[in-house]
């Protein structure tokens, strides 16, 4: 996969995902370097595993479980992500977040 095709797909995915995250109250992380890295992983995952999966969650075998990890996976982890004010990999953060250093990964088991 050429650098150029990775970049082009990244842009396409980000445009589509923006449409989804906006009504859910999220925006792309203001840390551009992190967004760039995660999106690149997603483009590669899409080519290799068939979908732009979350790069920070181990992919289970069952389709039903895997599909809950396709980015943006916010609808399937709403309570968890709303409590963290970010999705697990922090590609997306709540719209009111400006200081991302305050964000922390907290497993769902600690929030239940």
């Amino acid at each position: 996969m050429s650098e150029r095709s990775i970049e082009a797909r990244k842009k396409q995915l980000m445009k589509m995902f923006q449409r989804v995250i906006d009504p859910l109250g999220y925006k792309f992380n203001p840390d551009n370097e992190l967004v760039d890295f995660i999106m690149e992983q997603e483009v590669k995952l899409e080519r290799e595993a068939g979908a732009p999966f979350c790069p920070c969650q181990a992919l289970p075998e069952r389709r039903e479980d895997r599909m809950k990890l396709v980015c943006p996976c916010i609808p399937y982890h709403r309570k968890h992500f709303d409590a963290m004010k970010a999705c697990w990999c922090q590609l997306y953060v709540h719209k009111d977040i400006t200081d991302t250093s305050q964000l922390e990964q907290i497993p769902i088991t600690e929030l239940e």
Binding site: F37, Q41, C56, Q105
Partner: peptide
Amino acid sequence: MYTLSTCPWC
């Protein structure tokens, strides 16, 4: 540690 090669937090 269980990690992913794609995960920046790992």
